[in-house]
Amino acid sequence: MRITVLAGGVGGARFVRGLRHLVAITDLDAEIVVVGNTGDDAWVSGVRVTPDLDSLLYALAGVNDEGRGWGREGDSERVSDELRAYGVGWPWFTLGDLDLGTCLARTALLRDGLPLSAVVERLAARWPLGVTLLPATDQEVETWVHVVEDGRDRELHFEEWWVRTRAALPATAFVQRGVERAVPAPGVVEAIAEADVVLLAPSNPVVSIGTILGIPGIRQALAATAAPVVGLSPIIRGTALRGMANACLTTIGVAVDAAAVARHYGARAHGGLLDGWLVDEADADGVPGLETGGIRARAVPLRMTDDAATAAMARAALELVR
């Protein structure tokens, strides 16, 4: 069985780790391919940072900082302190020393001419991840946010809007720079086309999954695949448990509601993407309307409290379309 997952950062990493746990504790003979968001990527202090891909890498390698939700466990920040003292980089964006080592290795390999997909493969080979990790694209596609600050229209990199302002500045639009020239990274379209099931992780629908879907060819591959496409809601009882999905959804005019996000993706039966959708038990009242609209839906616990709970979510997603 081949399972392809489209995922963002922290929430996506937790979900994929739970899916991997499900495969490990059952007799499920499955290959997992993860297509990671690259829209959060940025050049910072001369190095290429890929926050979502690194969150996936570290979580699957078992070296992530569970407390912060990002970066390496037990990391120090001496280099970032020095950069800050010199006035270099983003003072509000702290990279740990081990994390910076990954970024330096990535940058060196990119400067040597390797595409991002080859760099990800090289970095991932260090640890037994149990999955194949692919970037959505090899091209630089960065998410920028239009805001109004001090009465002026401004454009901020998504990381600045998220980390520095904590989404306190209302966004008026999200723009993926360079997306129109991007192509799916090697293996991405094949992973979707040849999958037995495609899962949309409970990641931000706008700037994580949405950025992946915006790369020409990926949405079309999802529409054409024979595999069922099942998503898991990142919204529980009107609240996003991770990230800034609340503010992002409001900006694009989508209600912060589990069923509304499913309708945003749309039913494949009516030209959209979804065959199935899981909502939390707290949002069970939205299931009948989704079923009527052509999306098979089910209410199950969706809080990723540990690998066992997340594995149960993954099992429910697979069983929904069996």
Rank of each mutant, 00 (worst) to 15 (best):
M244E: 13
V321C: 05
P205T: 07
D27H: 12
T132K: 15
V79L: 10
S45E: 07
V5C: 01
V141H: 04
F15S: 01
I212L: 08
L123H: 12
L290P: 07
W43G: 10
A108V: 11
P216S: 00
W127T: 14
I209R: 09
L199M: 03
P301E: 01
E82S: 14
S80T: 09
L53C: 01
R48L: 04
G289M: 00
V279P: 01
T38S: 11
V16A: 01
D75I: 08
A224I: 10
R78A: 15
P91S: 12
E140S: 15
A309F: 02
M304R: 04
R322H: 11
M1W: 04
A316D: 02
S203R: 03
T239R: 15
L109K: 04
G276I: 11
E180Y: 08
E149H: 15
R303L: 12
Q220P: 03
D306Y: 11
T225R: 05
E31S: 14
S203D: 06
D99F: 10
M244S: 14
Y58S: 07
A314V: 03
G74C: 10
G238N: 00
L56P: 12
L104C: 11
V183H: 10
R268D: 04
V35R: 14
L320H: 02
G238W: 01
V33R: 13
A240L: 02
L6I: 06
I25H: 14
L213E: 00
A61T: 06
V120H: 11
A258G: 09
S80M: 09
R126A: 15
V197A: 09
A255M: 07
T4P: 00
T132W: 01
D41Q: 04
R20C: 05
R303I: 06
G294Q: 05
W70Y: 04
P115F: 05
A193E: 13
V10R: 14
R177V: 03
L232Y: 07
R164N: 04
R303Y: 06
E140T: 12
V141N: 07
L123N: 07
I235C: 02
R154H: 08
V119K: 01
G272P: 14
E180P: 07
T292M: 06
L114E: 05
D275R: 04
I25Q: 14
S76Y: 06
P170N: 00
M313N: 10
M244I: 13
Q220K: 11
F93G: 00
Q139F: 00
I192R: 10
R263K: 04
D75T: 09
V79E: 05
E160W: 03
L278I: 08
G217F: 13
W90L: 14
V206Y: 05
T107E: 09
E281H: 09
